[in-house]
Each structure stands twice: as C-alpha cells, then as structure tokens.
Nucleic acid binder design. Structure first.
Length: 509
DNA sequence: CGTCTTTGACCGGCGC
DNA sequence: GCGCCGGTCAAAGACG
C-alpha cells in the first residue's frame, strides 16, 4: 500500500525473487515506514547491500576480460576475501586429500566464479531495475497524491453544497450535459500527471474516440444527442458527475502571456489556424481566434489581441489541452503550467503540514516569508482561472532573469471558484503549450526581440529552480487569500484585487 | 487544387 | 424577453 494513496502498488518484480541471494532484495521494504515514501537513501542502501554482497564473494581468479565490466564486477574484483562456505569446503577437500588435480580445482573454481559473477550481474541489473522502478513510482506517487488531493477537496466541496444542489437540480442537469460535452471536446489528452483519470474520462465519454471523421463534429453530434434525449447519456453524465464542476472550470482555465511584439503573433512552437476575428468591447484592436492544427481535433485554442493601453503589447491567451505529442519547443510552457498546476494542487492542502507532505521543497518555498510576501499577485477579475505571464518588462536593465522577463506572475481567481477547482483545471491543462524555446542562447545575455523574449522566458521559467519559488509564492498567496477571503475581500482599492503583492525579487540563476 | 484567411452570420450566456 | 457580448461556424476569397 502506497502511503497516502490508499491503494496497493504492485511490486511484483521485487517480491518475486526466489533465489536465496535475491532474498536480500526482497527483504528491502521501501515502504516500511507508512508515513514516508521511498527515499533515494533507501535505494542507495540497497545498492550498498549489493556491493557488500559482491565484495564478500570469494574469487581467486581475475574476471575474464571479455566479461562486461560493470560497477558490480569491479567491486567484486576488489573484494578478494574467502568467506563463502563452498570455497571453504573446497579448501578442506584440498587439506583432506592433499593432492587434487589442478584441472579439477580450476574447473570447479571457474564454475563457481561464473555462478557468482552471474549472480552479481543479476543483482546489479535488478538493482538498476529497482532504481528505475523507484524513480518511476516516485513520480507516480507525486502525481497520484496531487490527484488524490484534488479529489478529496472536490468531494468535500461536493458534500458542502449537496443541499444547494438539490435546490437546483434542473439547472445542474444542464451543466452536466455541458460537462459531458466538454469531456468529448477535450478528447484524449496525454496528461502524464493524471493518466488514470483522463483515460477514464475519455473512455466513458467517447468510446469511439479517434475513429470519427472529425472528432469535433462527433462531439457536436454527441452534444446534440444529449440535448435531444438527455436520458440517453445518463451513463456518461453519472460517471462524470463527481468531476462536473471541475471539468467545467477546466475548459475555461487559461494561461495568458503578455509580450511586446510587432509581429501579429508570437511563435510558440505550435501550428495555428485562424478561425475568427472579433472586435472586443473596450479595445480598438481586433481579437483573433486561433486553433491548434498540429493534430486533427486538437481542442487547444488561443486568442491574440493587442493591449488597448499599449499596442506594442501582444496578449496571447491559451485554452485547452493538446491531444497530441508536443514538439520540444512547445514543452516549455507545458512544464511551466504543470508546475503551476501541481503547486496549486499542493496549495489545496491548505495547511503547511499537508503542503510539506505533498512536496517539501515547494512547501519550504511557499512557507518562506522572504519570497512569498513579495512575489505574488492575486486577482479575482477574470471570469475563469487565468495564469498570466507578464513578459513585457524591459530586458536591458540588468541580467537578472526576473527583471528580464518574469516580472510578474499573476494568478487570477474568480471569487466564486473554489480553490480546488482552480487547481484542477490548471493541473489538467498543463499539457497545453506553449512558447517556443530559444535553445541556443543564454537568456540573460541578450537584447532580444519581444517574441524571442517569450521563448526565452519559457526556457528560463522551466530551467530556473527559483521559478518554483515564484509559483509557490503565488499559490501561497492564493491560499492565504482563500483563508482570509472573508476578511480582506474589500481591502484593495481595486475591487478585483483580493490580496495583492507584487513580484519584485525573483532571483534567477 | 489545397490550404489558409476573411468576414458576416449564428449561437449561447448573461444582465437588465 | 430583449439586447449585448464573446465565441464559433462556414462560405467566399486569397494565396502559393
């Protein structure tokens, strides 16, 4: 049973060992401590066990040169101590009988040596496998814990609003239908963090996913079917009920990037097709609508519009999850939003202890008042959760990464959106991306074009460990805002700002 | 000829 | 119910 997850984890490869020597491996219990997940230290000890074992193995001959040289083999060569029973037995045979043919002796020892070598090799391989497995499981552990936290919060929220839901059954039914449609539209996102849930959703909502002539038209048909005959889609609705609100928000969650650019559109590593343009109220500049064309039916959209106040600023807003592999250039923002989402979910734990359990490093960053109090801006102005990256500040002032491109990291949160609902959509939309990386130049040494700045910013964001601190600070601010919402909702002169601090010291590499 | 852009029409949500 | 607004659709045109 994986601690904190509530379900068993198959460790078959470890436990299946039947060999006596491999018993050492099977005795290693990564999860003996129910309150902690397997640590690198434990696997290191495991490795040490194998090394110790190998050093205790007796050998009198050199390992043949043709033998693949592994670390374990080298260790074995260095440990020339006669400890094993078999060898001792051979020795006594020599003593007893005095004369024994050299050939037999050599053959016996050669066989023994081979066996031992194989054994050590096998254990070394198994050790490697275990390490890989541990790494994999650690990743899964983190992802699942994040997912679980979201579900728990969601459940709590659901319980709290049960009575309210009963009063608005009619309306919620409509929303469920919309949610089911959203499931279909979202398609089969390759969400590495929440594979299980997204797969489940995909399967339940769209069993023929990918086989239609056009996924989008298929989703529209499904939606129309639901409208005509709501009962026909009950199964879909029932299965999606627990995540209904979350999914609805997920569709709306966005990441917005502000950058100075003369070009009509920033290069972000994806292919886009314009499908509309509108004049938006309050802005003389038209808003252009694009959809991702890197894969058929990819639901990702983006809006591009110049800022009304400063027309040199291009505001690009992304929405949705890519349903296809992303090019490396586009992975940058995926990582960024994934980090943000993960920490937002961590924030959903809302207590320092919970946060520390979820991710100690980020928790420390979040709980560190020296950074959290100066980096986050929290706004409730957006109608849906929006993470805004403001890359418009002058890059020439100094070499500091934060001054170069990430002067502000804002998290907009609608008043009415429960925190876990904010977290989940961002978490799920972490796949979409993104900004193109400029891989070949140091971020902090150039005076680049605004469009380049965006790519560089993405790179800096994803490579700079301090970015986690910035995100953590923002989330920390949200948490506090969430906790104190009743107290300070009117504290700002700006009616939209709940709890505003500014990012002033994001120390880059 | 295929792909992409343009642009008016259409639709749904929301506030009054 | 009506109008406004944001978002999307799809026919027509442009382009390579």
């Amino acid at each position: 049973m994986l601690p904190g997850l509530g379900f068993p984890v198959n460790l078959g490869r470890v436990m299946e060992s039947s060999d006596s020597n491999r018993k050492v491996l099977s005795e290693i219990d990564f999860f003996s401590n129910p309150t902690s997940k397997p640590s690198a230290q434990e696997i290191h000890h495991h490795h040490q066990d194998v090394k110790t074992l190998s050093s205790n193995i007796s050998v009198k001959k050199e390992i043949p040169q043709t033998q693949p040289v592994s670390r374990c083999n080298l260790d074995m060569n260095n440990g020339l101590q006669l400890h094993t029973g078999n060898t001792r037995s051979d020795q006594s045979t020599l003593d007893d009988h005095g004369v024994s043919s050299d050939a037999d002796d050599k053959r016996a020892k050669s066989n023994e040596l081979k066996q031992l070598q194989e054994e050590v090799q096998r254990m070394n391989t198994e050790n490697q496998n275990l390490k890989e497995m541990l790494s994999h499981m650690s990743n899964n552990y983190t992802a699942l814990q994040l997912h679980l936290a979201g579900l728990i919060q969601q459940r709590q929220q659901h319980n709290q609003h049960d009575h309210h839901d009963l009063q608005v059954v009619g309306k919620s039914e409509e929303k469920k239908q919309v949610t089911a449609r959203q499931f279909i539209e979202l398609g089969s996102g390759d969400d590495e963090v929440s594979n299980s849930s997204s797969d489940e959703r995909t399967q339940s909502a769209s069993p023929n996913n990918g086989k239609s002539e056009s996924p989008e038209s298929e989703s529209q048909k499904a939606y129309k079917l639901q409208k005509l005959n709501p009962s026909s889609s009950n199964s879909i609705i029932d299965q999606s009920t627990t995540t209904a609100t979350t999914e609805a928000t997920m569709r709306k969650a966005r990441v917005s990037v502000r950058a100075r650019s003369e070009a009509p559109m920033i290069s972000d590593g994806c292919q886009w097709r314009k499908y509309g343009q509108k004049m938006a109220k309050g802005n003389p500049c038209p808003r252009a609508y694009y959809r991702c064309t890197m894969a058929v039916g990819c639901p990702v959209r983006k809006q591009v519009q110049r800022c009304a106040e400063d027309k040199t600023i291009l505001v690009t807003t992304y929405e949705g999850n890519h349903n296809h592999p992303l090019p490396p250039a586009a992975m940058a923002m995926a990582s960024t939003t994934s980090a943000a989402a993960g920490m937002l979910l961590s924030g959903s734990m809302s207590s320092p202890e919970g946060l520390m359990k979820m991710n100690p490093m980020l928790a420390r960053a979040i709980l560190n008042p020296s950074c959290s109090s100066t980096m986050a801006t929290l706004s409730a102005s957006a109608p849906f959760p929006t993470v805004t990256l403001d890359l418009t500040h002058n890059v020439n002032n100094d070499n500091n990464i934060n001054n170069a491109m990430l002067h502000q990291f804002q998290v907009h949160r609608p008043n009415t959106t429960p925190f876990h609902q904010l977290a989940q959509p961002l978490y799920n939309q972490s796949k979409f991306s993104g900004l193109q990386l400029s891989q070949d130049r140091p971020v902090h040494q150039q005076s680049s074009t605004p469009a380049d700045n965006v790519g560089d910013a993405a790179k800096a964001i994803t490579t700079d460990p301090n970015f986690t601190a910035v995100l953590a600070a923002a989330i920390s601010s949200i948490i506090r805002g969430n906790n104190n919402q009743n107290n300070n909702s009117a504290s700002s002169s700006n009616p939209h700002i709940l709890n505003s601090t500014s990012i002033s010291s994001f120390s880059g590499n």
